[in-house]
Design a protein around this nucleic acid. Structure first.
Length: 550
RNA sequence: GCACCCGUAGCUCAAUUGGAUAGAGCGGCAGCCUACGGAGCUGUAGGUUGGGGGUUCGACUCCCUCCGGGUGCACCA
């Protein structure tokens, strides 16, 4: 319908010789009383035309030639908005479009042909995932879903480092706990990982190797410990992610950048371009040339690269692998590294505009109105696994997605656990289950069979305001998905679906569906089915279940 | 000190990316079940959008400044 209006109004603008000086856009007004779609084009034109915006609007409207079957009303309002209202029939007839291919309703081809990568979680295997990782998993996975629904070709990727000092510390911690199983006095490294999970890993290690590691040279034993702990932790990480419905396509190992020589290649490439220099025994990247405040070390005087270099090399690989759009989902604590990486990417001749970085802020857990104190050092933090145990994966995902990523997120454990109307997840799921129940009832009555042809439904029997607003909302689903995808803002989908649920409940409250008037009953059942479709597809994108019963 | 994020109803958060009278949930108050699921619906109270300037037809949104909270500022990742 936007297309229809754009064509008609565009034609009128040309005939009035208002050339393409301004962008013609149609929006849905906040207030339904202002019509279904509105445009501010008259106000934009007024400036250059030096005319009163309302006069310009009047000019346009008087020349418009619109089909009354589609458009029921056009008027000028406020400072010069042109408001359009469509006929109810125009809307209701589109229900059949939703029901034709329900499982694909909401999909678009906006991103067709665009090879896209979404990187998220990317935690090193040194411990269990935290609730912060959980937010990242939910956000990253949902962004990936949104992009996929918008037609992008999406690769979900996890980047990790299983070398370096943290892993050494993991090995030493595991080794110490293992030795303590035989000798309580064995010293634990000062900066070791305190968490109980290390003890569990040590126990498992003992089951497998008994006491044989104690006899080995320490380096050899440490390497066994490292491999064992890493394998256990990674398995645990994948398991938790799977509980949330998160599955990555690619696990990219930082180490491979070294073994394949990519790290060296990057340094050489940068050297050729004259963008690195040596100073004080270290190698520096001229990030100041790229507009940053200071140059950065990429290779330490010890010969070891800093984290920046592999990060840059990794992003170079992303480009080399042919991605047109690269989405990085990071926690707020990684903000500082982004400019360096983008500068590196630019230095190598790639377009940093193709990299979209989604930063999510931290998560605070609340229990009984009080903040749950967490510290990784003291090892009293709540793991993602424990969180899912406590509130269930649907609530976890939904709560993590409810807020804009740029906002801090307060996670109310009591609310998430509550199986009642207060809980926003249940509100959505309840609407879906309720519709399922109605459909079951109707089928039992023999009123309706979703599988039979939906061609002969008399949609124009739907006339009530609650019916019409529900239809309108359902028809916004595809563009909502598209908007969420292009803005990388999953939280908008949760608010939209909440609105759909509200509109449905209102409709349900005002109209009985299964009634003797068989044609009207069928029309309403079709509307129910369409609402169920949107709720189900929306839940699918969010990664939560849409239950038939609850 | 510098950079980024946040500041909106008692609480947690939205606001179509610059649009019309700033909206939801929770909590408060008052109502609604003889028919398809009351995990629902309806009404009501609650605001100088942290303060102050500016940009324009129009600002929660953009710019400047100040105040308060968070995060980061290594030859750590």
């Amino acid at each position: 319908m936007k297309k229809y209006l754009a064509e008609k109004v565009g034609k009128t603008l040309r005939s009035l010789s208002y050339e393409g000086s301004v962008k013609l856009v149609f929006e849905k007004p906040k207030d339904e009383a202002h019509g279904d779609l509105t445009t501010n084009v008259a106000m934009l034109l007024a400036k250059t035309a030096k005319k009163n915006p309302r006069v310009v609007a009047q000019d346009i409207v008087s020349k418009l030639d619109l089909d009354p079957q589609f458009v029921s009303k056009v008027d000028i309002a406020g400072p010069g908005f042109i408001n359009f209202r469509f006929t109810d029939e125009f809307y209701t007839a589109q229900i059949s479009m939703i029901l034709k291919n329900p499982e694909t309703y909401g999909k678009t081809d906006t991103g067709a042909g665009q090879k896209t990568q979404v990187e998220y979680v990317s935690a090193n295997p040194t411990g269990p995932l935290s609730v912060g990782h959980g937010r990242q998993a939910a956000v990253g996975d949902t962004i990936a879903n949104l992009l996929a629904w918008s037609g992008y070709d999406v690769t979900r990727e996890y980047y990790y480092n299983n070398a370096g000092r943290q892993m050494r510390m993991l090995a030493e911690s595991t080794y110490a706990r293992y030795r303590q199983l035989f000798n309580q006095d064995f010293p634990f490294p000062e900066d070791g990982y305190q968490g109980d999970y290390i003890r569990e890993i040590a126990e498992n290690l003992k089951k497998e190797r008994r006491d044989t590691l104690a006899g080995l040279p320490q380096e050899e034993a440490l390497s066994v410990c490292k491999e064992f702990a890493e394998a256990e932790l990674f398995e645990a990480i994948k398991k938790v992610l799977a509980r949330m419905g998160v599955v990555h396509d690619v696990f990219f190992n930082e180490d491979s950048l070294y073994s394949s020589g990519k790290i060296k290649e990057v340094i050489e490439e940068l050297r050729v371009k004259g963008l690195v220099y040596d100073s004080e025994g270290a190698v520096w990247l001229k990030t100041t040339v790229m507009g940053l405040d200071q140059d950065r070390v990429i290779v330490k005087s010890t010969g070891e690269p800093t984290y920046r270099l592999p990060d840059i090399a990794y992003h170079r690989e992303k480009f080399k692998r042919g991605f047109d759009l690269i989405v990085d989902v990071f926690g707020a604590d990684h903000i500082a590294t982004i400019p360096d990486v983008l500068a590196g990417v630019k230095a190598l001749g790639y377009d940093p505009e193709k990299v979209k970085v989604v930063i999510h802020q931290f998560v605070t857990l609340m229990r009984d109105g009080e903040q749950v104190k967490m510290s990784k050092r003291l090892a009293n933090f709540v793991t993602l696994d424990e969180l899912i145990d406590e509130v269930g994966s649907d609530a976890v995902r939904f709560f993590f997605l409810m807020r804009s990523t740029s906002s801090h997120l307060e996670f109310d454990l009591n609310l998430a656990k509550e199986q009642s109307e207060k809980n926003p997840v249940y509100y959505l799921q309840y609407a879906h289950a309720r519709i399922a129940s109605i459909l079951r009832f109707a089928e039992g009555q023999g009123t309706f069979d979703a599988k039979v042809s939906l061609d002969k439904i008399e949609y124009n029997l739907l006339k009530g305001p609650a019916e019409i607003s529900l239809v309108k909302l359902l028809l916004e689903f595809p563009e909502t998905v598209e908007l969420c995808a292009s803005a990388f803002e999953p939280h908008r989908l949760t608010t939209y679906l909440h609105d759909v649920a509200t509109a449905f409940h209102k409709f349900y409250h005002e109209h009985r569906v299964v009634i003797p008037e068989i044609e009207l009953a069928k029309a309403r059942l079709s509307l129910c089915l369409a609402a169920k479709t949107v709720l189900a597809n929306g839940c699918k994108i969010l990664g939560i279940s849409a239950p038939e019963r609850m």
